[in-house]
Write a protein that binds this DNA or RNA. Structure first.
Length: 574
RNA sequence: GGGCCUGUAGCCUAGACUGGAUAGGGCGACAGCCUCCUAAGCUGUAGGCCGCGGGUUCGAAUCCCGCCAGGCCCGCCA
């Protein structure tokens, strides 16, 4: 148990006892007061009407009943609140000891057995990843890291659509199109090289019914498990998928398993889903096709029919998705899916089907809205895109210019390139993860590449500063006296470091990775203020100097750990 | 036509689930701070009917209802 958890429990117990002895009703809900008013606050407003007394009077009565002790230094009634002030020395002492002992696992919650599968990215392998959906892998991977920090056993999955129209179009294009008619890509990366075939084939399909027919034949072949069709499509998308994997690795994202859709068609589980869905009372037939009537599940709109079987007997994406989720459900106690907001209806349909089939657990979806361009949304089909690879390169190039400007005197080109890579990629991930997933983002180069203020270099720089102090002091062994760290900037920094486990807990429980980004920014800001106010190396009091060095090391550890959850490098120098 | 999401200073954003103390930050603007641990930093100033209107409450950016604006969806596509 981490210090703040102990404090909260102790205060809750104190208050519960006090309320009981005063014969006041109600539960204890603690709040965090504004700075300077203690660490915990108990609002008395809800008691006022019941007790027929002013909240201020109630707060005073409760405060008078409480006797400080343990973690609690002092209790004070103020404006209808009972404020609790924790013993700063004890809190500092406990926090620093814990951080210096746990090091790169400080903040991590106790490990448990619960297994969660996080599905993310799952992009059609018909072209490079583009910025419009770039939030998906970044949110997904950050959730993976966050759940691990919160003690879960986690695995990530990429659901690979090797059965659908998109890959069939790509395969047709590769087979029939003359390479000289395809516009040359800017790189020789396979996903960029092949997307032109998809785009051209898509155009032809829209113009020419016979092309559409040929593509349909491929899809039919896939659905019936025809080996030739499967091989053709696999050979078409495999290099594209490899390109996507390379892009993901570039931004520190590894996926544990790529699960192909075809697996669930081939092993008969999709057939089983169809059989069982047909037996439910919600199933109806129309023109030889089958659907579930989902109106009674709260789905509204023009069409309340969830079709799961076409009249030609082939299945649909959502049907196969149901089979996939049944399979996933056997392996984990919780499922999380990171999906674009365009998948809301499909996701709900799958959820309804899973409920009808009595499958547990039902997946929980995290939806993000698309990144659009100032002129509208991105589209691979129409070629109106900014590719993730291009954005990565721009971020690194821009970061390189910044490092060069500042450090070309002291650092080698190799060192500057390493730093630029860390900063550029960090900037990309940070800019995306710091914003709530459901907010719309309009992509603008000048914003994406802005490296000042609430941006990753600010945080990485604070970390580098801490490393620099520690390197110059060359400490081998920590010894500190917590009672000397009394400067407001020191206390603020310690309080911030103390909160880290609470933040991880909250971010994970609410599935909100952006809280970690907020936290790491605030921590860096607290460190920079400490850096300004409290000279470390030049401090003449040896005990205070040593204590500050311990605090610097603790801050360094927390910044690095929080950045690790975000998948962002923590450079030792910048 | 219907459903879901979003709306906070010139721009971007936190806080909303779980209602509470003066709505935090950042960019941009203006004014300062390097003989001192990397100034990618720090300090200060200006800038807010928290989209609009009603309701619930001792108390609403937060909950409820109705509008308005933007995004997404309503296919035997994925």
């Amino acid at each position: 148990m981490y210090p703040l958890e102990e404090c909260k429990q102790e205060i809750t117990q104190m208050l519960t006892d006090a309320l009981a002895s005063l014969q006041y009703p109600g539960d204890v809900h603690l709040e965090t007061p504004p700075p300077g008013m203690g660490q915990y606050a108990f609002p008395c407003f809800t008691l006022a009407p019941v007790m027929k007394k002013a909240p201020q009077a109630i707060a005073a009565t409760i405060a008078a009943t409480l006797r400080p002790g343990g973690w609690v230094d002092r209790v004070e009634a103020k404006g209808g609140y009972v404020n609790f002030y924790l013993n700063p020395t004890r809190l500092t002492d406990a926090t620093l000891h814990l951080i210096l002992k746990r090091k790169d696992t400080y903040g991590w919650l106790e490990a448990h057995k619960e297994h969660v599968i996080i599905e993310h990215t799952s992009a059609n392998p018909n072209g490079p990843l583009h910025v419009g959906r770039a939030r998906n892998p970044i949110i997904g991977d950050t959730l993976v890291r966050l759940f691990k920090a919160a003690g879960y056993h986690v695995s990530s999955q990429f659901y690979l659509d090797d059965m659908g129209k998109q890959v069939a179009i790509l395969a047709w294009g590769l087979k029939h199109l003359d390479p000289s008619t395809i516009p040359a890509p800017e790189t020789d990366k396979d996903d960029h090289r092949l997307v032109g075939y998809y785009q051209r084939a898509n155009e032809l399909m829209e113009q020419n019914p016979s092309v559409a027919e040929e593509i349909n034949t491929i899809i039919q072949g896939l659905e019936h498990g025809d080996p030739a069709s499967l091989t053709m499509v696999h050979n078409a998308y495999a290099p594209v998928l490899a390109g996507i994997q390379t892009s993901l690795q570039r931004i520190n994202i590894g996926v544990d398993a790529y699960v192909p859709e075809s697996r669930f068609v081939l092993d008969g589980s999709v057939d089983a889903v169809i059989r069982k869905l047909k037996q439910t009372p919600y199933c109806h037939e129309e023109d030889g096709a089958f659907y579930l009537d989902v109106e009674s599940f709260g789905i509204h709109g023009r069409n309340m029919k969830f079709f799961f079987l076409r009249k030609d007997g082939t299945t649909l994406y959502a049907t196969r998705d149901v089979a996939y989720h049944q399979w996933k459900a056997t392996q984990a106690s919780a499922l999380v899916n990171v999906l674009g907001e365009d998948h809301k209806l499909e996701s709900r349909q799958v959820e309804i089907a899973l409920t009808l089939l009595k499958t547990q657990p039902v997946p929980q979806a995290i939806f993000y809205s698309f990144v659009s361009l100032p002129g509208g949304k991105m589209s691979t089909r129409r070629g109106r895109v900014v590719y993730l690879d291009d954005l990565i390169e721009e971020c690194i190039a821009r970061a390189y210019e910044e490092v060069k400007q500042r450090r070309s005197e002291e650092l080698s080109d190799q060192q500057m390139r390493t730093i630029a890579e860390q900063v550029g990629i960090g900037a990309l991930r940070y800019n995306i993860i710091k914003v709530q997933p459901e907010k719309d983002i309009v992509f603008k180069w000048e914003e994406a590449l802005n490296f000042e203020g609430n941006a990753v270099p600010f945080i990485q720089y604070a970390h580098a500063r801490a490393c620099s102090i520690l390197a110059k002091a060359s400490v081998t062994r920590h010894s500190f006296d917590a009672s000397l760290l009394t400067h407001p900037s020191e206390m603020l920094l310690v309080e911030q470091l103390t909160r880290f486990p609470v933040v991880i807990d909250e971010a994970c429980q609410n599935r909100r990775p952006n809280l970690i980004a907020n936290y790491v920014y605030e921590t860096a800001a607290a460190f920079n203020q400490f850096y300004r106010d409290c000279p470390v190396l030049s401090e003449s009091n040896h005990v205070l100097r040593a204590s500050r060095l311990s605090l610097v090391d603790a801050a360094r550890i927390v910044l690095a750990n929080a950045l690790a959850i975000l998948g962002i490098a923590a450079p030792k120098e910048m």
